[in-house]
């Protein structure tokens, strides 16, 4: 996908809002609401808080629109505001990345599971796992730390590239990659653990 920073439709809408046509802001919202929802749902667990935060995000976007310089896509810039608004909320409640000490007890079980010559013992087991996966996947995603959930969703669901995710989160690209590696591994390990536990 080509990375178009200076989208003429974005510029048209932004100019309209800045020249006093507030109604054009509705179009901006409609174009970006999906991406904002993805971030808010992954970062914020509480339903009521999601409503307040989503409004807060777009009111900030409206107030700051005059500062937008078209150095990124409008959607990326709005996603950046969304991500940081959620991050501030989480920081206030200390609900960020997992405690590095936690999950250590799982490590040994996982090592055994993963170091098996095959993750699954036979074809039938693979089939069972695949059938059950869609059911347990949602629950296991929910259990991930908010930042991991968001990164995985932006990459695998919204199909954004590392550069765009780095812009949204304002993290170095290398950090985004290494967080993504860890997030995917955590998700895979947790799924295996749940599945194996259920299968036993």
């Amino acid at each position: 996908m080509e990375y178009k920073v200076n989208n003429p439709a974005d510029r048209f809408l932004v100019d309209k809002v800045l020249s006093g046509d507030t109604k054009a802001f509705r179009s901006i919202m409609k174009n970006t609401e999906g991406l904002v929802a993805q971030i808010v749902f992954k970062m914020i667990a509480n339903k009521e808080d999601r409503k307040d935060i989503a409004q807060d995000i777009y009111l900030k976007v409206f107030q700051k629109l005059g500062n937008f310089r078209f150095q990124a896509k409008l959607s990326t810039w709005i996603a950046q505001i969304a991500y940081h608004t959620c991050l501030n909320y989480l920081e206030k409640r200390k609900l960020l990345l997992p405690d590095p000490g936690s999950g250590q007890s799982h490590e040994e079980i996982l090592e055994k599971l993963i170091s098996q010559p095959d993750i699954f013992n036979n074809e039938t087991e693979i089939l069972f796992y695949k059938k059950e996966l869609s059911g347990i996947l949602g629950t296991e995603i929910d259990k991930l730390p908010p930042v991991y959930k968001t990164l995985i969703s932006l990459y695998h669901h919204e199909e954004l590239n590392y550069t765009e995710i780095a812009e949204i989160t304002q993290l170095p690209e290398g950090t985004v990659k290494s967080y993504l590696f860890r997030a995917r591994k955590t998700l895979r390990d947790n799924l295996l653990l749940t599945y194996k536990k259920d299968a036993l």
Partner: peptide, 16 residues
């Protein structure tokens, strides 16, 4: 994909 189950655009537009 997640969607808001309320009219976000409507609520925000009222406040502008």
């Amino acid at each position: 994909k997640p969607v808001f189950d309320f009219d976000l655009a409507g609520i925000v537009m009222e406040q502008l």
